[in-house]
Design a protein around this nucleic acid. Structure first.
Lengths: 339, 339
DNA sequence: CATCACGACTGAACCGGATAAGTACCGTGA
DNA sequence: TCACGGTACTTATCCGGTTCAGTCGTGATG
């Protein structure tokens, strides 16, 4: 019950292994009739090229790697990742590329996994996510010499190819909008503070609040889960004077936060305005629907995948700046209550 | 800048390729001192075994395949999949197995992908999801001779290893609970009708309604998205007399449905009770929190992965029946309005 | 008619490891 | 002192493809 090999085909067709290889790969060097005969035999006995043997000759693995340093259970919790992966997949599957996925506990393990996959010839490239400031993974990946796309700011990407969007503009838009509505006390529920984009958002938030003359802007950091979003909201709403508007770094926390507000007998949007970053179906489905900073995460992932494939193909590739999230006003924002 | 091979190590150490191979694999046949020297050199020049070369000698790929016949963008929409994948991942990553993921348009393509991966020696086994009745994929997988775990009812799994749970019991519990509250008109918003588990739920729903003497039970089928869930809800709530309770096949639709009810000026739970299947953080976060049929999807995925790994390891493996979803009553269910 | 070009194919090396079979060397016991 | 057994290797072969350098026969050309 062994798998058929080109040697089997060669024997049946009465030609050499080399001829079979040429025939099956569309290379010149075999007559049309012989080629047809070989192809027919291959078809009949159900032959498939052994990728290991191919890879041994330096072929592509037709696979892209994604190792995530997050607890495995967070995968299902964070809509961002799922959307990102589905966007990456949509691009990869169109080109018959597969995605190698592994969840690892930390950065060291992540590097070890990439090192192994690359060293073993299992992947042709990788996508680096959750970029930190002075991320130690960047120099490691650089020395590997593997094609890598980084989701994050170019300043932190080293010589790797960055794919990013300017979160500063988005947060500026959100704060300006809230200010125009009359809000003076705006607070932010941010994500993991060690991630570069969290800090970039923090800074931009601080800057725009200062510009617009808002009272000291507060940012609370969380791990993106609903639970921490709820806890952060409770803390912020217990302050005095309490903020009249909250901006959340993802929609899960925004929904959880709104729930807390309602539990505290605050009306959204009459007593409290809420803005969510990332606009999933969830944001539109809750009552009231959430004003959101929308972006097409799947398209973002698809762009990253497309650039990685180009990089793997040896093309010249330029950094890609996605358009910033745009504000989609819905019913969760309104002028603040009269003082 | 070539990758180092055992030949390089052999040259540096002044021994043969064979000796290096023995040394690095912990095989007897080399002295402790030579082994130490070889290992040190391997370490120093950053050698990694080329998996292609290893695979050529019949080694494991340490990878499990998952091809999904769904539009790629649905991945991010359906929390079930993300949770399932995160559960599978948690088990795989503990054993340093990777997951090969590819989204494909249809079953033919799915089979082609598995055929290729298996034929090419890229995966050691696979997990089959979204089982249909008389699923054509089952016989195909059987002839492949690859270790496969099927998420679905044993009756439909053929000789493949089933991992399943009894949805009938769960729906029975939900309907009994609603009946005890006083509901007589209960409708169901189900998933894709071609999936085996949808039909099993349909049947169980019909059976239990008949037993409890409820008026003709209606089931509407959808594609699991919030949009279709909303549309189905609109249709059901426009009927006369209108149902007093709705059971949804996932939480996304339940939330969307509740939103529709509120839009139609119906109070949940005073005018309409809502039960969701699958209990994500989402269910707890909306107002009112949803009564749900909870199950631990991640644990389910982990079980499937564990059995698959055992199967790959050549162990005797028995089918696994997960415990049924249990009803978690929350504020979205109450006695029906007085007639 | 000798030469040449070309198409069609063969044979063998090669990729990077695993492994069976063979060999050199050492110490040991009879 | 010599056969014996074991250790510590080496050599050669294999896995399943790809690819390069030839070989052979045919028809065209000068």
């Amino acid at each position: 019950m062994k798998r058929p090999t080109i040697a089997d085909i060669a024997r049946q067709a009465g030609v050499s292994k080399g001829a079979v290889s040429y025939a099956l790969n569309g290379q010149p060097g075999v007559s049309a009739s012989t080629r047809a005969r070989i192809v027919a035999i291959a078809e009949e006995i159900g032959w498939r090229p052994n990728s290991a043997a191919r890879a041994l000759n330096g072929a592509r693995a037709d696979t892209v790697g994604l190792a995530l340093s997050r607890p495995a259970r967070f995968l299902g919790v964070e809509p961002f990742f799922m959307e990102l992966i589905s966007g990456i997949e949509s691009e990869l599957s169109a080109r018959s590329y597969a995605l190698m996925l592994q969840v690892v506990p930390d950065h060291d393990e992540e590097m070890a996994v990439y090192h192994r996959w690359w060293g073993e010839g299992r992947i042709d490239g990788a996508i680096l996510v959750d970029l930190h400031f002075a991320d130690p993974r960047v120099p490691v990946m650089e020395t590997l010499g593997m094609p890598v796309v980084v989701l994050g700011h170019p300043a932190e990407a080293g010589s790797l190819l960055p794919v990013w969007s300017d979160d500063g503009l988005a947060i500026r838009e959100a704060v300006a909008y809230l200010t125009a509505l009359g809000h003076r006390r705006v607070a932010r529920v941010g994500g993991l503070p060690r991630l570069a984009h969290t800090l970039l958002r923090d800074r931009a938030f601080g800057a725009v609040c200062a510009e617009l003359g808002l009272s000291d802007p507060i940012t609370v950091h969380t791990d993106y889960t609903g639970e921490e979003g709820a806890r952060a909201t409770r803390r912020l709403l217990s302050m005095s004077p309490r903020p009249t508007a909250l901006i959340y770094d993802n929609d899960i926390m925004a929904v959880a936060g709104m729930s807390v507000a309602q539990e505290m007998r605050l009306d959204v949007p009459a007593d409290l305005s809420i803005v969510a970053w990332d606009d999933s179906p969830l944001s539109q489905v809750v009552r009231p629907p959430l004003t959101a900073l929308s972006r097409d995460i799947a398209a973002y992932g698809a762009q990253a995948a497309r650039r990685l494939l180009a990089l793997i193909g040896g093309e010249e590739v330029t950094p890609y700046e996605d358009k910033p999230s745009r504000l989609t006003p819905r019913a969760s924002t309104a002028p603040p209550p009269a003082p």
